[in-house]
């Protein structure tokens, strides 16, 4: 049996699946960290990103802030926070919130910026208030980019949530830390496979979601037509993924 097979055998072993320290429970913890951190980060970053995107003010600060936050070493931050907040779930959660903010912030303001100025002018011309411009034009049209931001922050957090095990925070990393100390490589690999699988599933769901949130009346075909007539490339809506095509 090679190591990969041993890893899968570890996953399939009933002893490792259920119970408070089985991988199902640990996987749910990993998910709870991911969605908890991304939800909190979204509450902070989305309004902030919208404000920056709508007004165009503070863009430089938002860009450098999101860039700077990305450069923070997660494990170092986690240990620093755990020294203040104590061991358990709090320090990892705060760490992951900080990790999740930059992509969401960038997605939120980039989504607004990607809206064609002519569309906004048109909205104003038909008598929409500022609030209506935001809620009925900018938010729906910026949604694909925002979902893109959420998607990358979910991916980042779900992979990094393994670190929580370092400070008694549970999640799938607990298996990996233990396995390294005991030189139990099938367990380390089994847990890693689970993290990878979880990340791939979430990535798939968000890829689908990103397609679904394209507002009605704005379809990819139109985007191409607009582009061919105008020098404004990000005209009607923007999914960054399609831009290159």
């Amino acid at each position: 049996m090679n190591l990969i097979e041993q890893g899968f055998a570890w996953i399939l072993d009933p002893e490792n699946i259920s119970g408070p320290s089985g991988w199902v429970a640990r996987l749910l913890e990993q998910l709870a960290y991911t969605f908890g951190a991304v939800a909190i980060a979204a509450v902070i970053a989305v309004p902030l990103g919208y404000l920056v995107g709508h007004t165009g003010k503070g863009r430089d600060i938002a860009v450098s802030l999101s860039g700077g936050f990305r450069a923070l070493p997660s494990l170092g931050l986690l240990i620093l926070l755990a020294l203040g907040l104590g061991i358990g779930f709090r320090a990892p959660l705060v760490t992951f919130v900080i990790l999740a903010i930059p992509p969401i912030l960038a997605g939120a303001y980039a989504g607004f910026e990607a809206v064609d100025r002519r569309t906004i002018d048109a909205a104003r011309a038909i008598g929409m208030t500022e609030w209506q411009v935001v809620t009925r034009v900018e938010v729906p049209l910026g949604l694909p980019l925002l979902i893109g931001g959420l998607r990358s922050s979910v991916l980042q957090v779900v992979a990094t949530a393994t670190l929580a095990g370092y400070v008694a925070g549970g999640a799938l990393g607990a298996f990996i830390f233990e396995a390294f100390a005991l030189r139990d490589y099938p367990q380390a690999l089994g847990a890693s496979i689970l993290v990878t699988a979880l990340a791939l599933v979430l990535e798939g769901i968000f890829a689908l979601l990103q397609k679904l949130v394209v507002p009605r009346g704005v379809v990819v075909k139109e985007q191409r037509e607009v582009r061919s007539r105008s020098s404004r490339t990000r005209a009607v809506m923007g999914t960054p993924i399609r831009e290159g095509k």
Binding site: I79, A82, G86, I87, G165, Y166
Partner: peptide, 21 residues
């Protein structure tokens, strides 16, 4: 049992001081 992965380092000491362990 609470796993703290720093081999009796500062995190472990902090947890002891905070009465978490």
């Amino acid at each position: 049992f609470t796993p703290i992965e720093d081999s009796g380092g500062p995190l472990t000491l902090q947890a002891l001081k905070d009465d978490q362990v």
